[in-house]
């Protein structure tokens, strides 16, 4: 590249300073990297790096604290929202978020998830759903689709045997403690833009003390799904979105679940 061309150019996008220089350990094409980056972009843009505490889960993103350049805690499997509750209760003026995968949030940590939102903890819960256990080698997740082949559903998930995909985000939206619930994705530039907007709102809402913000990110797992990254993005659109449609599920001020409005 010619030096004089760069001279006339301005940076319109660069990695946020709220990410460390450590390269992500994720597999090629994995959505976790985008999710991490977008969260940290929001933290940078809101200027709240010094007021933000994150909680990492157990799962592929167990090392989220290697990358996110904010104070962080690594919680036990499924308990990120409990740890985040503990942090928020003693530091009510700080921004607290948890980051969990489907196994962490919707299987082993279901009780903590439901009760954290039901209490309306003023935290942001980020839920990355790729319908598989990536870290342990591609086992069935609570959100795995019917018929989906994993290493523990080798003949495809059979609902009569092992139950249906758990739409925990819809469950969450039923709770009065939930303030803002949305489902987004990271598979296209526009999806990433929408996710970022939602995350920004969610962080800002935290100052209002109105309840829990919960954002599901439908993501991919090329390694677990045994396909290349581009095919995995197609697979998301064709298979994940029919079960996990994108969009707002509960928006402040708009009652999508009238029965839970109690004031």
């Amino acid at each position: 590249m010619e030096a004089n061309i760069l001279d006339n150019l301005e940076v319109v996008y660069q990695k946020p300073e709220t990410l460390t220089d450590t390269p992500f350990h994720y597999c090629p094409g994995c959505g976790h990297g985008v999710a991490h980056r977008v969260i940290m972009e929001v933290v940078e843009e809101l200027g709240i790096q010094d007021q933000t505490i994150g909680v990492a889960p157990v799962g592929c993103s167990v090392f989220a604290y290697h990358y996110m350049n904010v104070d962080m805690q690594e919680a036990a499997h499924g308990r990120a929202s409990a740890a985040a509750t503990g942090i928020k209760r003693v530091l009510p003026d700080k921004y607290v978020f948890s980051y969990q995968g489907d196994g962490d949030l919707a299987a082993i940590g279901t009780a903590e998830t439901i009760h954290t939102v039901n209490r309306g903890e003023n935290i942001l819960m980020v839920f990355v759903n790729n319908a598989i256990y990536g870290m342990t080698g591609g086992q069935m997740a609570p959100t795995s689709l019917c018929g989906q082949v994993t290493s523990t559903s080798p003949y495809g998930r059979e609902a009569t045997q092992i139950g249906f995909p758990l739409k925990i985000t819809e469950l969450i939206a039923q709770l009065p403690g939930a303030y803002f619930v949305a489902r987004h994705a990271v598979h296209t530039p526009n999806a990433v833009r929408k996710l970022k907007k939602a995350l920004k709102s969610a962080f800002e809402y935290q100052k209002l003390n109105k309840g829990t913000c919960f954002i599901e990110i439908v993501s991919n797992c090329p390694s677990g799904w045994k396909m290349n990254p581009l095919d995995s993005q197609k697979w998301i659109e064709e298979n994940m979105f029919p079960m996990y449609p994108l969009g707002d599920i509960k928006v402040p001020g708009k009652s999508t679940t009238p029965s839970t409005e109690n004031n």
Binding site: V11, Y13, C30, V192, R193
Partner: peptide, 21 residues
Amino acid sequence: TGCVNCALVCPDAAITVYRQA
């Protein structure tokens, strides 16, 4: 054109985008 789309989907935050002032 410096549209940023590549950087937005990059899972490794590996892309810096420049645009003509």
